[in-house]
Design a protein around this nucleic acid. Structure first.
Lengths: 303, 303
DNA sequence: GTTGGAAACAACTTCTGGTTGTGGAAGTAG
DNA sequence: CTACTTCCACAACCAGAAGTTGTTTCCAAC
């Protein structure tokens, strides 16, 4: 209907538009009439030598073209084959996602989309082409054939506590000192490498990490933390949450050693997609540098 | 179809979306299936507890919302009642149109559209509400009741000639000196106040202005001028054409006296539209100032 | 007046897009 | 394990939207 109007406006005649659209002149007439009825205004002034946009039509024409262009973009975004690079992240707040956004802002011409797979098997999705790359912390022996893994970002962990927590005002804390404190990280799906990371971490330092419990979202977690004098959680440096501005929450860096969450980028081996190449290069240089004396699970591939 | 997808994505269930859209669950199912078939990708992953966007769906969702928003804008632009201010100009290149564009750029929040009425009777169109304001050079006695006229911009005329024209290199020229030169201004509709202006001008200074002839557009006129040693035309200072960059055309200001085209803004008396008020205020201050010793037709209302 | 071109109208046909009814898969409670 | 619930897909059916061909009206040009 919009396309019909645009075609008539550009050809100046119903019949020419009908030819171009491959339908009959009468069908064009009906479509235009329906569009005008829908909008409640006349869009075209009919003369004996064709049709020209009325004032309303002149105003509407660029909008109609814009709609068609946006529709085209929408279809392009999911058309298999020539679509933008698609990167999977665990969630959109963690530091790798933020780094991808920064990359996109500094290279606006590089088209890329960020998605969140709910799948456990991200490698399978990468192989199948559902996504082009995925940020994970996959153990080296779990990377299947055909998939490459590059450890691109180590996110140092920080303890997040409310103002009443015993550790609220220390400048930093050693992981071993967290033994006995209750650490709550809701929303971790069992069986994911995320869960494996925290399990390894808790075993290495004798922590009690409660990864279960319902996940009511980060806001609810923040509320709970702010009101509790004993509860704490772990976040990565660079993760983007509303805190600590709201709720007066404190981020306490972990040191000696500094546990890092090893973000690994999975992608199809040999994938030469230019945006993927550029993204990897960007992350190699622009990622937050790892502090000295880090701790990471042994099972993470050392790249 | 897009709205259906967005609704399902936001509610998470076909049935809830169907309720919200006022159709049956089966209809929603069909629509989504048709959309997925059209795009060639799965947009939703169906589980036994609802549906969530697939990676393709996650990418497509913001595009779909964008389409809906743009469609809404398009309808808004022509919806009678609360639509943007609509200003008619003789054509989009002349200085009043350029001034309106400048106003729009400096006040992006002021929504306004520019159209070109092909009607002779712009005042009628303003009264009828087809447009909210119209730039004309209407004689004072032709302004009908209910219409206000404000002379907002005097555009000094300039002679436009090719490099071979006898007047090509003079710094300025008096109108009377143009007697004997052939001046060609194609595309003037007889009976318009534009034609009346040039008729009055030619009578006042004994010029021979050829306002007839086919109008092949400004590019053709420029070509002709550039190649001719005797032809010239008149343009307003501030009119935006591709010249004089292309074709090596020269603009020669007219002086002693300086004829000005008196652009008058017509609008409904008492129209309090804030954008109209702001536009008039802007044009009063930002318009090009009139030089001393101007000439304008007597019949123009002196405001 | 006549002619020719452009768009609208009318009658008919097709098929899209809706409906109701039903079935299957997956979770959930007893 | 079985029964029940929830959620979506499939089938059959039906109305109306949207296409077709044929015809009429309007208007400008000859």
């Amino acid at each position: 209907m919009l396309r019909t109007f645009v075609t008539v406006a550009e050809t100046g005649q119903f019949h020419a538009a009908a030819d171009e659209l491959g339908i009959s002149q009468q069908a064009v007439s009906k479509r235009i009439a329906a569009l005008e009825r829908h909008l409640g205004v006349m869009l075209l002034v009919r003369t004996s030598r064709g049709s020209r946009p009325s004032p309303d039509g002149q105003v509407f024409l660029p909008h109609a073209k814009k709609v068609l262009a946006v529709v085209e973009q929408a279809e392009q975004a999911v058309r298999p084959g020539s679509r933008p690079l698609r990167v999977d992240v665990l969630n959109r707040r963690i530091s790798p996602a933020q780094a991808v956004y920064r990359f996109h802002r500094s290279h606006p011409e590089m088209e890329l989309d960020v998605v969140t797979l709910s799948t456990e098997n991200a490698a399978q999705a990468v192989l199948a082409g559902t996504v082009d790359a995925s940020f994970r912390a996959l153990p080296a022996d779990q990377v299947p054939a055909g998939i490459s893994a590059e450890r691109l970002m180590d996110a140092p962990l920080e303890l997040l506590v409310g103002p009443g927590h015993p550790l609220a005002d220390v400048p930093h804390v050693r992981p071993a000192e967290l033994a006995g404190h209750r650490i709550w990280i809701p929303g971790i799906m069992p069986g994911t490498e995320w869960a494996a990371f925290y399990r390894t971490l808790s075993e290495a330092f004798g922590l009690s990490i409660d990864a279960l419990g319902p996940d009511f979202g980060p806001e609810a977690l923040m509320d709970t933390l702010a009101d509790s004098d004993s509860l704490a959680t772990l976040v990565g440096r660079g993760d983007r949450y509303l805190w600590p501005q709201a709720h007066d929450l404190r981020r306490i860096p972990l040191r000696d050693p500094a546990p890092v969450y090893p973000h690994v980028l999975l992608f199809r081996s040999g994938d030469q997609h230019p945006v993927l190449t550029a993204l990897r290069a960007y992350l190699r240089t622009a990622g937050p540098r790892t502090p000295r004396d880090v701790w990471a699970p042994e099972w993470v591939e050392a790249v």
